[in-house]
Amino acid sequence: TLTGDAATEGGAVDRIDAAARRLEALAGVDAALAPLAERLRGAAVELLDAARDLERYADAVEVDPGRLAALEERLALLERLRRKYGRDEEALFATRDRIAAELANATNSEERLRALAQEEAALRAALAADAAALSQGRRAAAETLAREVEASLARLDLPNARLEVALEPVTAADAMPCAATGAEHVELRFSANAGEPPRALRRVASGGELSRVFLALKNALRSAERGAVLVFDEVDAGIGGRAADRVGALLAELGARHQVLCITHWPQIAAAASTQLRVVKRTQAGRTVTRVERLDAEARVEELARMAGGTRVGDATREHARELLRGAARSRRSSRSATPPPGR
């Protein structure tokens, strides 16, 4: 403090005054200290005057303990809000605005419910329109798909095969206009023989028939998307030699638009490929190692001859293999000339 109180040894004024008296006493010994003593005496007078002015100011200030407590409580509340809802003032205001909007919605709940009901009705109407458009498109596409698949199946030695794309209506839950898959369930039905009605494909088709139906489906959809990667794992299962020729030709047609990978044991199908790979197993350092080898022209002849003739490979089987490759090359050239270039 400036003037001191009962709890202290003296304020700044008292200490400067004491220092001034000491310098005055010393000035009797050294006259050079007299000006310093005078300056301290003047400083003590100025400080005393300032202390009295401050006391008068303090006496005039009205202290409100209740107001002070309220401010401290508000500061504490702001600190708690900051820790809970955000690190800065902007985050606090954003939270306040969000809560205010939620309260407003709760206050206007009836109006909000009416608006939601109108929005739901509009969405249901739009969903019903979309479901109807989907059903119409499905009916048109089903006829086209069945016709194209049956044509491919005839090429694959199934001349009497029939494919039907059945559209069975489904019951939607909660009075919805349609289910998640639309207004109907799609099922493929198949018959391989004349006079037999089509039934569920997954139940009546044999392994060989399933392989050819799958290939026919891929062929019918080949123009839907260019550049797809199609993998056929032993699509020749359960078929004969004549059907294998046709499967190979159809795979080659697919290869004109897509990347086709086919695992086969038929030389007719392997010959239709533009590139042939051979998977071999060997024992190396006491372990079985599987390798994939790309075959050159001569190796293809040997491999196709082995596939056709078994372990006994002679000149006749090699010539047969060469003829398979020549025929496949002619088919690929014909397929390329009939396939439109990309973008057309």
Rank of each mutant, 00 (worst) to 15 (best):
L123D: 14
A131H: 04
L158Q: 04
P169K: 00
A125L: 03
R147C: 15
A115Q: 13
A131I: 06
V149N: 03
V149G: 00
A142V: 04
A101T: 07
E168M: 10
V165A: 02
L153I: 07
E168K: 09
Q136R: 07
P159R: 02
L145S: 01
R112T: 11
P169G: 14
Q136Y: 15
E150Q: 06
T144L: 08
L123F: 01
V165N: 05
A166I: 03
V170M: 10
E111S: 09
Q136E: 15
V149W: 00
R147D: 14
A131R: 03
A154S: 05
R162Y: 05
V165D: 08
N105K: 06
D130L: 12
A117V: 14
P159T: 03
L103R: 10
N108S: 08
A131L: 06
L145N: 00
L167F: 04
E111L: 07
E110M: 11
N105E: 15
G137Q: 13
T107H: 14
A141E: 10
A117W: 13
L113A: 15
P159I: 00
S109N: 13
L127G: 02
E111T: 13
A128D: 02
A129Y: 01
A146M: 06
V149A: 03
A166Y: 10
R162V: 03
D130C: 12
E111N: 06
A101H: 10
E120P: 00
V170P: 07
E119W: 09
A166S: 12
A115L: 08
P159W: 01
R139Q: 14
R162D: 00
E143A: 08
L156F: 07
R114P: 01
R147W: 05
N108D: 15
P169L: 00
A151V: 13
A121N: 04
E143V: 12
P159H: 00
G137V: 06
A132P: 01
L123Q: 13
E168S: 15
T144W: 05
A106N: 09
R112F: 12
A154E: 11
R98M: 14
R112D: 09
L156V: 01
E120F: 15
R139C: 12
E111V: 10
L156N: 03
R155G: 12
L127N: 07
A133E: 15
A154P: 14
S152H: 15
S109E: 15
A128S: 05
L116T: 05
A101G: 07
A122Q: 09
E148N: 05
L156W: 05
E148V: 00
R138F: 10
L134P: 06
E119S: 04
A100G: 04
R147K: 11
E119M: 03
T144K: 04
R124Y: 03
E111D: 10
L145E: 01
A121C: 06
L116D: 09
L156T: 02
A104M: 11
L145W: 02
R112N: 12
A142D: 14
R155H: 08
E148D: 14
A126D: 02
A101Y: 12
D130V: 13
R112C: 12
A128Q: 01
A129Q: 08
V165F: 08
A131D: 03
S152T: 13
A101P: 06
A117E: 08
L113M: 11
A129S: 12
N105W: 08
N108E: 07
L163S: 00
A141M: 03
A142W: 14
E164G: 04
S152R: 15
A166F: 09
Q118H: 04
L153F: 03
R98F: 04
L127R: 14
